Simulated scan of single mutants.
Amino acid sequence: MDAVAMLKADHRKVADIFAQFEKARGKDRKQKLAEQACLELKVHTILEEEIFYPACRRVVETDMLNEAYVEHDAAKLMINDIEAGGPDEAFYDAKVKVLSEMIMHHVEEEEKRSEGLFSLARAAGLDMDDLADQMRARKKTAMARLQGHPEIPAETHVFHGEDNAFALAEAPMRRRGGGLEMQEAR
Rank of each mutant, 00 (worst) to 15 (best):
A68F: 08
Y53H: 11
M102F: 08
L65W: 06
P54V: 01
R122Y: 10
A121Y: 09
D63L: 13
V96Y: 10
A55L: 00
S119V: 00
D130I: 11
R113L: 15
L126S: 01
F91H: 09
R58P: 05
A84M: 13
F91V: 10
R122N: 11
D133L: 12
A132T: 04
A124P: 02
H105E: 15
M128I: 04
E108C: 09
R58E: 14
T62Q: 14
C56V: 01
E115R: 11
G85R: 11
Y92N: 07
E109R: 02
L126M: 03
R113V: 15
S114W: 14
A124H: 03
L117P: 01
V96W: 10
M64Y: 04
E110K: 04
L117N: 02
M128P: 08
R58L: 12
P87D: 11
T62W: 08
K97M: 04
H72Y: 11
H72T: 07
F91I: 08
A124N: 03
A124D: 05
K76A: 13
A123P: 02
M128K: 02
A84N: 10
D130T: 14
L99K: 00
E110W: 05
L77I: 03
E111L: 02
A121I: 01
E108G: 09
D73H: 13
D130C: 09
E108W: 09
F118Q: 01
A74D: 13
E115F: 12
E89V: 03
Y53V: 00
K97A: 05
D81M: 12
E115Y: 10
P54I: 00
A74G: 08
Y53T: 02
